[in-house]
Design a protein around this nucleic acid. Structure first.
Lengths: 214, 214
DNA sequence: GGCAATGCACGTACCGGTTAGTTAAGTCTG
DNA sequence: CAGACTTAACTAACCGGTACGTGCATTGCC
């Protein structure tokens, strides 16, 4: 990203700033209504931009959606890198990852609905995105490393697939949060109180550690 | 349901049959495109019914969606009841439930996308549905029973919340399947081969048993 | 001055929902 | 039990609103 000098006078015409506003508004709108339900006019309004700008910079609603998705994945992967899991002992690293994933999903609920939307469309917007592979590979490799280190240290049992583990860590947080509305009905319980959220995190950490421990 | 006598000549005008065709077509269309992306005209066409019939029987697109959702939950709960988990020993019962859930989601992928769609809309269609509570309560109670029996028999550790367990069993299957498209990109692996699916089921059973065992 | 950034206003297609009317199937009556 | 009557199932055509996308004019910035 370019630096945001504090002394910079606000330009009336600022391509970059406009694009950012459009992307932020689009993320909100797509997250709220899905691809089919999202309205380009609403995005333009919320971005304080003219609809013409959206088509100028992003060509189509679908290409805008693609860009929003890629950015969303880039954001979470960037945040994960900042955890420096490779510097932690295996058990702490995994616990940190479970806790981080949980908190990230809570702080960024749009990520969850965006991913859901993209999967409804069979990931056709991200299919073939080189950027996605660049983002994912280091992350998956990192978790595989933690596992290996854990096995070598004798704290984790051998033979666990890093991909299965990754999916499971995501699943137990993701499902609870995206399906919290139907969940509240099925289980007749408020799943979003502080106590409920804390209990779920503890449960998830327990689930993963029991899965891994030798 | 009324009996379907084999000798019955197909009536030209058959309210019940038409409603069923509409519901089946609607489930498909809503599952494929979400509430916002679904087209009432498409549903009418696929149901071989006039669009007017949809409004006659279901009042609105949203009420049709509500009905489709309720029916989907009724279907899975009915299938679960047929497992007679109360007649199995605790460990077998849980394993059976994990396996059933996994297979049901695979055989009925529309259920997953419908639930996702409803959660995108914060469950406003199912909120206050008495039918949903009637369906859910026995199911949740059943799993709680299995847990209790397992603790009494000394095979499960005490203190596990039945709701957390239920959510986790659903999560580890559900997430893998709904997010299989972005998953294939992130993990650069086909998640839907027979081998991959078998491996996931085994992993999920292991995850749950390790979570429960004393 | 030249070009990128922006705004206006419109086209065209579509979409949820409705109006007005038709026809099949039961049902009442003599 | 035949034929008039009633009701419910069904259809075609349409409407008002809205959605994505664009042509073209304008304006700020280097």
């Amino acid at each position: 990203m370019t630096e945001t000098a504090t002394t910079e006078r606000p330009r009336i015409r600022d391509a970059e700033a406009t694009q950012k506003r459009i992307l932020a508004a689009a993320r909100k709108e797509f997250a709220k209504s899905g691809l089919g339900g999202a309205r380009v006019d609403t995005i333009a309004q919320r971005a304080k931009a003219n609809k013409r700008m959206i088509y100028h910079y992003f060509k189509s609603k679908e290409q805008l959606f693609t860009r929003v998705l890629e950015d969303a994945y880039a954001d979470i992967r960037t945040a994960e890198r900042k955890l420096h899991l490779d510097e932690l002992d295996p058990e702490t690293a995994i616990t940190t990852l479970v806790r981080f994933t949980w908190r990230y999903y809570q702080a960024n609920p749009e990520f969850l609905t965006l991913v859901n939307s993209e999967n409804l469309h069979r990931a056709r917007h991200l299919k073939g995105s080189a950027r996605m592979h660049e983002l994912s590979r280091p992350f998956v490799g990192m978790v595989a490393d933690i596992l290996e280190r854990g096995v070598a240290a004798g704290v984790f049992r051998p033979g666990i697939d890093a991909v299965q583990l990754n999916i499971t860590i995501a699943a137990i947080g993701y499902y609870y949060l995206t399906n919290r509305f139907t969940g509240a009905i099925v289980y007749e319980r408020d799943l979003m109180t502080k106590e409920a959220l804390d209990a779920r995190l503890a449960f998830n950490i327990e689930t993963i550690l029991r899965l891994l421990r030798a």
